[in-house]
Nucleic acid binder design. Sequence first.
DNA 1: TTTATATATCGAAATATATCGATATATAAT
DNA 2: ATTATATATCGATATATTTCGATATATAAA
Lengths: 127, 127
Amino acid sequence: MDLWYFILTKNEINLIFGIAEFWYKIDIFTYMNTNLDNKKVEKISKALGDPYRIRIMQAVKEEKDWLQCQAIKEMFNLAQSTISHHLSQLVDAELLHAEKDGRHARYKINQEVMGDYVSYLSDFRDK
Amino acid sequence: MDLWYFILTKNEINLIFGIAEFWYKIDIFTYMNTNLDNKKVEKISKALGDPYRIRIMQAVKEEKDWLQCQAIKEMFNLAQSTISHHLSQLVDAELLHAEKDGRHARYKINQEVMGDYVSYLSDFRDK
DNA sequence: TTTATATATCGAAATATATCGATATATAAT
DNA sequence: ATTATATATCGATATATTTCGATATATAAA
């Protein structure tokens, strides 16, 4: 049996989808994402450009559902006000959804914005 | 004919690949990208967290092949040393390949690192 | 060899960000 | 009502980044 190794480009994904469309008689629509302007991309990138915030995002990702602010505070040796600052950077960039539950705050990843950012960056690939 | 609208998650892509594997009797291997550590992700994000550098990336993308440094200088009202600084941020983060051609420098997007960054971020999606 | 051009590097000043401690606010527990 | 807990905000300081002008380096043109 042969083993083939691919790094797939957008065009190649489109080809595969094309075959799938033909075989299953369906239409798969892909679209270029225009939801993010440069200002927004800058803000998101800045938000991800800090070691603590990267680890916060990872912790939020690991959590099945929402992650309590309290849990984040216990991960680091940082003042509570500093954690709060990092969290608002992530919320301002809309990378995280924030929700208040009594006196607790909890967070989960904003899938839509994260998806927009990923597809924005994907446009830098191939041509 | 029915029209269905999907935002596909990684798991759903895997399902589609699974069907393709079954039908064409091939193996499609997907793997979690571990090429980037947090330090690298931080550096790349920081590099993308500046309006000039975002526009430089876009300009490099638009260029069919390599983009001359000179062309970038003409896009902005910035001192030559500042442009040089921004370009080295992007090259240090390995978002751009740099090449010297005589006394000119030229750049193109480092597809591998950009791809690694995109797939790193993709792991923040779905679960 | 001299001069012009493209880019890189250095040092200083301006600006932005991270961090803390103190304090405010809002909710829950007593 | 009072007290304790979770989070947010403020002001000050430390640190990092951006920007410039001046200068260095390296290549091409005269």
